[in-house]
């Protein structure tokens, strides 16, 4: 039961994370030009670094789900 709820929670986190990503990118696309072009386009570098970080985090969440599934099965035996 406990692992099930954590799984649900992780699912929720992934979904809200995805939603946030879409939100952020849409905000960037609308308010875009001036903010990302300001200060010598330095914010494109920030955006790129943030995206790489988000990508790694998503992969970690994917691994996390695999491991918790295994933990759940071992716990059940």
């Amino acid at each position: 039961m406990n692992t099930l709820s954590t799984n649900l929670m992780i699912k929720k986190i992934v979904l809200t994370g995805l939603a946030q990503l879409v939100l952020i990118s849409s905000i960037l696309a609308q308010a875009d030009t001036d903010f990302l072009r300001s200060t010598g386009k330095i914010y494109t570098v920030v955006a790129v670094l943030a995206l790489i970080f988000i990508g790694i985090v998503f992969f970690l969440i994917y691994l996390e789900r695999k491991v918790s599934k295994i933990e759940k099965e071992i716990g059940n035996e």
Partner: peptide, 15 residues
């Protein structure tokens, strides 16, 4: 044309 975004070279290209 690049300005500060030249720094992306160290984060985009290594991918």
């Amino acid at each position: 044309n690049l300005q500060e975004s030249i720094r992306n070279l160290y984060y985009h290209v290594p991918m």
